[in-house]
Computed example of a mutant assay.
Amino acid sequence: MSTQTPGPGRRSIGDITPKLAELTDDVLYADVWERPGLSKRDRSLVTAAALVALYRADELNLHLGLALDNGVTADELTELITHLAFYTGWPCSVTAAKQLRAILADRPENEAPRP
């Protein structure tokens, strides 16, 4: 039995889809996210943009927090969300903005985006 802390895939879906959780942790996060071609910060920007565009609110919640952890600023995320409204649709960006607001409210170390 492994003594490692379970990754995000195993924690969120390991009980219902163990193979998908394994692939999430061992391929997506341990391999793809660790490739040297893009920084984790840049991967977070790309991932957040894709999730906003695809209206994937469940995954976006996790990845907005991860983006902040990876050095993307709240101001950069608000700019990303605003920019995408014109390309992906208003509802996608409004939903993302509400999620970012909630995430920032739970993170006192992050300053609120400037108006």
Rank of each mutant, 00 (worst) to 15 (best):
D31I: 08
E22D: 15
T82D: 13
H63P: 01
A57D: 14
L28R: 00
N61C: 12
E59S: 01
A53H: 01
H63E: 01
V32R: 03
T73Y: 05
A85W: 00
L80G: 09
S93T: 00
A102Y: 10
P108N: 07
H63N: 02
R10L: 10
A30K: 10
L51T: 05
A50C: 15
R114Y: 13
R35T: 06
K98C: 13
L62D: 14
E79G: 00
G37P: 09
Q99W: 09
N70I: 06
T17D: 14
I81P: 02
P113H: 07
E22W: 12
D26W: 06
V72I: 03
W33C: 10
L28K: 02
S2Q: 12
F86R: 07
L64V: 05
T88V: 15
T5N: 09
G14I: 03
V72Y: 02
S39Q: 02
P8N: 15
R107C: 06
R11L: 08
T5S: 10
V72G: 00
L64G: 03
E111N: 13
L54K: 06
Q4N: 11
I81L: 05
R56Q: 14
R35K: 03
A102T: 11
S12P: 05
P18W: 03
V46F: 12
V27M: 14
V32C: 07
L23N: 02
R56P: 04
A21F: 01
T17R: 12
T82F: 14
L100Y: 00
L77R: 03
I13P: 08
N70Y: 02
T17C: 14
Y55W: 11
W33I: 05
D26K: 12
T3Q: 14
A112G: 11
A105D: 13
R41K: 01
T47Q: 03
K19W: 13
Y55F: 12
T88H: 08
S2T: 13
A97F: 05
L28C: 07
V94Q: 13
L66V: 15
L64S: 05
L38W: 03
A48H: 04
T3S: 12
Y87Q: 04
T95C: 11
P18A: 05
T73I: 07
G65K: 10
L45K: 02
M1K: 10
L104C: 06
T3L: 12
A30S: 15
T88L: 08
G65V: 06
L80K: 07
K40H: 11
V46N: 10
L38A: 11
A57N: 15
L51A: 01
K40W: 04
S44C: 04
G9K: 05
E79A: 05
V32M: 09
G37C: 12
W33L: 07
T3Y: 11
E34K: 10
A53P: 00
A49S: 08
Y87T: 02
R43K: 08
C92F: 03
A105R: 11
S44M: 03
Q4D: 15
R10M: 14
W90T: 10
I16H: 06
H63M: 02
G9H: 01
T88K: 10
D75V: 04
F86E: 10
L66D: 11
E76R: 03
T78K: 09
H63Y: 05
L66E: 11
A50F: 07
S44H: 02
G37N: 13
